[in-house]
Simulated scan of single mutants.
Amino acid sequence: MPLLVPALVGLAFLLLPLIALLVRAPWRGLPEQLTSAEVWEALRLSLLCATAATGLSLVVGVPLAWLLARTRFPGRGFVRALVTLPLVLPPVVGGVALLLAFGRNGVIGQWLDSWFGITLPFTTTGVVLAETFVAMPFLVISVEGTLRAADPRYEEAATTLGASRFTAFRRVTLPLIAPGIAAGAVLAWARALGEFGATITFAGNFPGRTQTMPLAVYLALQNDPAAAIALSLVLLAVSIAVLAALRDRWMTPS
């Protein structure tokens, strides 16, 4: 087939960098690299911030997905485009936008600082906000698609039987869309775990406070390539685990 050769070239292009990572990995010194205090601190902070960002995305992203899927209002298409904008926006630009919004002199940050003494940039909370900004669209898209596929008549039947809109959503709709929420949450968590550009721009790179694993990889690559490879292997393992978790939902042939 004429398509076979370019298909194999494309496959090789995607696989060769990963194979090179495995081939050049310092397997003998890997246990020592992965047991260092710096690696575990970066791993702990990454897991903590990615989980917090996913939780925040669930709290505000599921209602936002419901709004986009089940309600009609002027400019809904424009709002949907704004929600998905972080998917294509360069992460560094997202970090700059976060600084202009939540920095000490930002549109909102100046009031947070003067009224409540809250400073978000270059803090762990800033890491969570940066990761939420880039990860939440994955959750919204997944949940919105599931909501559109779910039959709204079940929710309407519950309201005709006396349930409030919120009760119908909580008792009927949520169980129906739970697989979509789970898939979106896994994607958002994985995206938050791998976030780099917005995090380093908005939160900086301070060990123990804002240095997540991608930032640690970047720093280690300049001083200790073996440590950078070890951290990269951990992130690669996480990515494979995410793909395995989503396989039954999105990768099983119909």
Rank of each mutant, 00 (worst) to 15 (best):
L235I: 08
L215A: 11
T210L: 02
M213S: 06
A241P: 12
A226V: 14
V238C: 15
A220P: 02
L243H: 10
Q222Y: 03
I240T: 06
R209V: 01
V234P: 14
P214C: 00
V234D: 10
A220T: 05
N223P: 00
A228H: 00
V217T: 03
L243K: 11
A228L: 05
Q211T: 01
T210C: 00
P214W: 02
A241D: 15
I240Y: 02
Y218D: 07
T210F: 08
V234W: 08
L215G: 02
A241N: 13
A237Q: 06
S239R: 05
V217I: 15
P214K: 08
A230P: 09
V242E: 15
V234N: 03
Q222A: 15
L215E: 02
R209W: 01
M213G: 08
L231M: 13
V217S: 02
A241V: 13
V217L: 06
S232H: 09
A216Y: 04
A226E: 13
D224N: 13
L221Q: 04
L221I: 05
L221G: 08
P225S: 04
L215I: 06
D224P: 08
I229H: 01
I229V: 11
A227P: 11
L219N: 02
A220F: 07
Q222T: 13
L243C: 12
L233T: 12
L243R: 10
D224C: 12
Q211V: 04
A226R: 12
A241K: 15
L221F: 02
Q211F: 00
L243Q: 01
G208W: 07
L219S: 09
I240P: 03
L235N: 03
P214H: 00
L215V: 00
L219K: 08
A230Q: 14
N223A: 14
V217D: 08
M213F: 00
M213V: 05
L243S: 07
P225G: 06
Q222W: 05
A216D: 01
V238T: 15
A216N: 02
Y218H: 13
T210H: 09
A230R: 15
V217Y: 01
S239Y: 07
S232A: 11
I240C: 03
A230G: 13
I229E: 05
R209C: 03
A227S: 13
L219G: 12
S232C: 04
A230H: 13
Q222R: 08
T212W: 02
A220D: 02
M213Q: 04
N223W: 11
L219Q: 01
L219C: 09
G208A: 11
T210Y: 11
T212F: 01
I229Q: 12
Q222I: 00
A241H: 12
A241T: 10
A227G: 08
